[in-house]
């Protein structure tokens, strides 16, 4: 599903990713562990096609869902619209779309905030909306950039449990600096330092 071959990416004079090769199969969750600036987010952006590598090849097969580090919730859209907007194409017409929105609101415990805009939600609530939006269209590939960063201990544990069944059957790449998140959510952990997998 995801195959990276000898990827290099520089940001100006700084080496962001250096000679990274990686494969993630369907049904596999891989965590990228590392400190800030180690290249995790850049790698996710390369997989998502938001940035192009300076050299190497990126092969991605399937639709992508992503949780951004900044969450990137559209400020003018209500919670249910955030989910609705990503449901397009023949599969999500009419009743199927409505049912899927209701399902996502229910799964992520967002029913009572369906008609609120992101600016009126707490950090944890916004995190749930971002996760719901990422998985709503049932993507084959899921890219999660610090997916539980805005949550406290209790909420973090609860959301991990909600996430586990959702990750099954997809190729998942998780960027995190939290070892516990990586251990629970991923089957394989890779450590990154100065743009390299070590």
């Amino acid at each position: 599903m995801i195959e990276l071959h000898h990827i290099h990416k520089n940001h100006g004079a700084t080496v962001a990713v250096a000679d990274v090769s990686l494969a993630v199969k369907r049904g596999e969750s891989v965590a990228l562990l590392g400190h800030s600036g180690s290249g995790k987010t850049t790698l996710l952006r390369l997989v998502a096609g938001l940035d192009l590598p300076d050299s190497g090849t990126v092969c991605v097969e399937g639709r992508i869902g992503m949780v951004f580090q900044s969450l990137a919730l559209w400020p003018h859209a209500m919670v249910q619209e955030q989910i609705e907007l990503v449901l397009h194409g023949p599969r999500w017409s009419g009743a199927a779309k409505t049912a899927r929105v209701a399902e996502m609101l229910d799964v992520f415990g967002l029913d009572s905030w369906a008609c609120r805009k992101p600016g009126t939600l707490s950090g944890g609530e916004q995190q749930r909306v971002a996760l719901a939006r990422a998985v709503a269209s049932d993507p084959e590939i899921l890219l999660l950039d610090e997916p539980l960063a805005h949550l406290d201990g209790g909420s973090r544990q609860e959301l991990r449990e909600r996430l586990l069944p959702i990750l099954k059957g997809r190729a998942v790449l998780i960027a995190t600096h939290d070892e516990e998140d990586a251990r629970v959510l991923a089957q394989r952990c890779l450590r990154m330092r100065e743009g390299r997998i070590v």
Partner: peptide
Amino acid sequence: LEPSLLEAARIFLPPRR
């Protein structure tokens, strides 16, 4: 505009939308 708002749109939506 936060650039990631439009990046999220690029991932989730077709260009017209």
